[in-house]
Design a binder for these strands. Structure first.
Lengths: 190, 190
DNA sequence: TTGGATATAGACCGATCGGTCTACCTAACT
DNA sequence: AGTTAGGTAGACCGATCGGTCTATATCCAA
């Protein structure tokens, strides 16, 4: 066999497929990107996809699982600035930079969920889990003594969702400016 | 001819198609609902669709144009409660009720935009226009003397977007409660 | 060197899609 | 009564999709 040691799952083709599919799905949506396009862009044979994933749906799920891990890890790597306001600002910085990348279509996870035909299913569960973890992360960035921590965390998540969405849609001129100022006001008025 | 008076465009089949397609598109997305399903559900022949619209895309645009008109008219029909706070509350009531309808998948316009393969195009323009008009409507509900009207309007739109989205995703337990309280705080801290 | 697992290109399949065409029916106006 | 526009049912078309199969090439380990 080719590799005696190391997980056979960690093939180079598999990782290339995950990265390429992720990039294409982000820009056009899971349903609008075909198997042929993914494999060709990844420089991989179509059979390599089906040797690593049982179906396109399985590839899709793996793509967004990895993407969620990557995003949450990047957020944790922001560290812990000394003040609550700075910690929240850093989170807004992260998502503002992310939303500004050309080709972005709002939150990639919401995009994935809205591409599905049915509202339930593994992708929807994955996205719900990601958003809950994001909320936990925001909660952890708030001062522990704060009595309204939970509500403020919810509110900041809503502002993030709204800002990322409007950065794509364009109904609000500078959504991240508005969202940051709103968050600052909410933090101040404890 | 069948009808000498009245616009021939206002055919019964055309309106049935718009309503049926709107209902199906809302629940499953424009790309996940086929022409056959729309015409069968509308109780209309496939040719009736193509006698009233040049293509599925044209039907889709007409559906969301009518939907935007309907939503904005319903919001204007909320009237003008005496206080600013009550006017904003009424808007949140409207969207909370709308988001609670079974089968809803967040904002229907964002859903439509994210179903498209490409980020530009008529649907995206339509959605951007709708969101701008929504922002204008919120702006009009704020006290005229308020110096921070524009920013607060932006912020409330972000909260609405976030709440409608999370009502679908489920990452926040009671998104409209959090959004209302955030809006109240922002209004108070002028 | 050889055996065996992996990757490759590409033909192939059935299903579905948007869209067209045709033949027929119905019902209102002259 | 006859004309005619609009609606209907359904066969049909080309394109695309996800997925399978096969024959060939590659390369590591024994």
């Amino acid at each position: 066999m080719k590799r005696t040691n190391g997980s056979p799952r960690a093939s180079v083709g598999r990782q290339r497929l995950l990265e390429t599919a992720g990039r294409l799905f982000l820009r056009r949506g899971t349903a609008n990107v075909g198997i042929n396009e993914v494999t060709e862009a990844a420089g991989v044979a179509r059979m390599t996809l089906y040797n690593n994933f049982p179906s396109k749906e399985a590839l899709t799920i793996a793509v967004y699982e990895q993407m969620a891990e990557t995003v949450l890890q990047a957020l944790e790597r922001l560290g812990r600035p000394p003040t609550e306001a700075a910690r929240i600002e850093a989170i807004f910085d992260f998502f503002a930079a992310s939303a500004a990348i050309p080709g972005r279509r709002g939150c990639p996870f919401i995009h994935a969920s809205l591409q599905e035909a049915e509202p339930a299913g593994p992708i929807h569960s994955l996205v719900a889990g990601y958003k809950r973890k994001l909320r936990e992360l925001v909660l952890g960035a708030l001062d522990a003594e704060r009595g309204d921590r939970c509500e403020v965390a919810d509110q900041i998540v809503l502002l993030l969702d709204g800002a990322v969405t409007e950065a794509y849609i364009g109904g609000v001129v500078d959504p991240f400016l508005a969202a940051r100022r709103a968050a600052a006001t909410l933090l101040r008025s404890r």
